[in-house]
């Protein structure tokens, strides 16, 4: 490599690194799609694509809910519990009180905001690790979810709401519209707005952010609230897709919520927000799931593989970081 090229490489290293991550994920996705296309004739059908996208529409928002707090170096174990609680409450308001969809959803989101405020305020006011706070609140939220209707689902949801949840244009589910909007908003938040910069600054170096006059505690509370809102949106659209408010909503979100951002290469110490890569990672994991379903493998394989993927992904990130560090010291 010439000296000029070397210089250019080093000056835009971060950028090229991000691109690499991106290209890497896209490559694996293409490869997997190719393999599935050859092995499984059912893969390239419109309905299978619909199934695939329908799944991603929810899990991607779940992943974003976790990403939100990972950006500031915290963890949120109550993503699933919040989603479940909001779904049950919203469903209940629709069935029992007969509230119109828009109002019920708005109130549901408001409950989500309350849950996020509880997490955020407890974390910042007490200075206790968000992990343990959200472990406790998750238990409390789950109690509400199951207790509200004695562990029974609500079935009588407004027809239009369910139609939205289950309808599609070709392979494209309506609910994916919500996911796309959420993704774009998050991208804009982190790339273009003051709040986004402040969140990234708090995640990158909390002390420096504080000394630079950023209201760290307020930012942390906002982050937990945003995470809870995203969890709530995921809960509500999953409810629409299922056509009923199941108390089990959210109970299996913990693993994918961490696996997807980690596969996307998020820095667990905070400070990075790979919004687009997270979408690719969600697609990748959905493809693996889809492949297992199509090949009629034991459903427990997905759990095994998700765990393995987490370990491999962090391992690779780590390896690259070490190699990167070696290269900088050597040069």
């Amino acid at each position: 490599m010439s000296a000029v090229a070397l210089h250019q490489a080093s000056s835009s290293r971060l950028q090229s690194l991000a691109n690499k991550e991106w290209a890497w994920l896209a490559g694996i996705i293409l490869l997997m799609s190719a393999v599935l296309t050859i092995l499984e004739p059912n893969f390239l059908t419109q309905f299978n694509f619909y199934v695939l996208l329908r799944g991603i529409a929810v899990t991607l928002i779940v992943a974003y809910a976790q990403l939100m707090v990972l950006v500031v170096g915290q963890l949120n174990l109550s993503v699933g519990a919040t989603g479940g609680m909001v779904a049950i409450c919203t469903g209940g308001m629709m069935e029992v009180w007969g509230l119109p969809t828009v109002i019920a959803v708005a109130l549901g989101l408001l409950i989500g905001v309350g849950a996020g405020l509880a997490n955020g305020l407890l974390t910042t006011r007490t200075g206790i690790n968000g992990f343990i706070i959200t472990l406790a609140t998750a238990s409390a939220f789950t109690g509400v979810t199951i207790g509200l209707n004695d562990a029974k689902p609500w079935y009588n949801l407004p027809k239009r709401f369910v139609e939205f949840g289950q309808g599609r244009i070709g392979p494209f589910p309506y609910i994916a519209i919500v996911t796309i909007i959420v993704g774009i908003l998050l991208w804009v938040l982190f790339e273009r707005t003051l709040l986004g910069r402040q969140i990234l600054a708090v995640g990158g170096n909390q002390r420096a952010a504080e000394l630079s006059g950023i209201p760290v505690d307020r930012i942390l509370v906002i982050v937990f609230v945003l995470s809870a809102i995203l969890s709530s949106i995921a809960g509500i659209i999953l409810m629409a897709r299922l056509g009923s408010a199941q108390p089990s909503i959210g109970s299996d979100w913990l693993l994918p919520s961490f696996a997807i951002p980690i596969v996307a290469g998020i820095a667990l110490s905070g400070g990075s927000a790979p919004v687009i890569n997270t979408a690719l990672a969600a697609l990748l994991i959905a493809l693996i799931d889809n492949g297992l379903v199509l090949t009629k493998a034991d459903p427990y394989w997905i759990q095994f593989l998700l765990g393995l993927i987490i370990l491999v992904a962090v391992g690779l990130n780590r390896l690259r970081a070490v190699r990167e560090a070696k290269r900088t010291t050597a040069s």
Binding site: F131, L305, G307, L308, I310, L311
Partner: peptide, 14 residues
């Protein structure tokens, strides 16, 4: 946290 989360999933799956 992450290592044992991943391991838990691997073990339970197996």
């Amino acid at each position: 946290f992450i290592v044992t989360l991943g391991m838990a999933s691997v073990i339970t799956g197996l």
